[in-house]
């Protein structure tokens, strides 16, 4: 537990920096795996005919699922599957990590067969005190998902808590 933590100029410099684009795939297998992971029983997320009857091109991505980053050994994070190359880096030295919150805004359907190009930008750094965790660094990341037709389909804003 960190007693004190301060933002340095070097950390502040990272605000605004963006990752290079990375490919996220939305496939029938990945949609089913996500839906199964959450525990969905709605056939629309598993059965192509049911999806089409419900008005989708193919299996729709369940809410909060935005594809899976293509995993390349050595270039992807072993734990979180996201690309590691060229990501905004904040050298904070804090070991604990918790998720703070997530917001997703959708502009179009995301369905199996879509290939998304994803760019993530560090938009804010903030230090807060918690009784339980001590000094915490809260990072805010904004991630833009663009489909194969060049259409921005979703923007996700997430907070990570380091302590």
């Amino acid at each position: 537990m960190a007693k004190e933590f301060e933002l340095t100029d070097e950390m502040r410099k990272a605000i605004g920096s963006a990752s290079p684009p990375w490919t996220y795939e939305v496939t029938t297998t990945s949609v089913r795996a996500f839906a199964r992971g959450v525990g969905y029983t709605d056939p629309v997320y598993f059965d192509a005919d049911a999806a089409q009857r419900a008005g989708y091109r193919s299996l729709p991505a369940p809410p909060t699922y935005l594809g899976t980053p293509v995993f390349l050994p050595g270039r992807s994070h072993e734990i979180f599957s996201v690309p590691t190359e060229g990501q905004p880096i904040v050298k904070h030295g804090l070991k604990g990590l918790l998720d703070g919150g997530t917001e997703t805004e959708y502009f179009a359907d995301v369905c199996a067969g879509d290939t998304l190009t994803v760019v993530s930008r560090l938009v804010n750094l903030e230090v807060r005190e918690s009784k339980a965790l001590g000094a915490m660094l809260i990072t805010t990341q904004k991630t833009t998902y663009t489909n194969q037709d060049g259409e921005v389909v979703a923007v996700q804003t997430g907070q990570a808590i380091y302590y």
Binding site: A33, R36, G37, T68, F71, F80
Partner: peptide, 14 residues
């Protein structure tokens, strides 16, 4: 169930 979710989401945080 959490292991299924890890596989489905790609989040393998131990």
């Amino acid at each position: 169930q959490l292991v299924k979710y890890a596989a489905g989401s790609g989040d393998f945080n131990p």
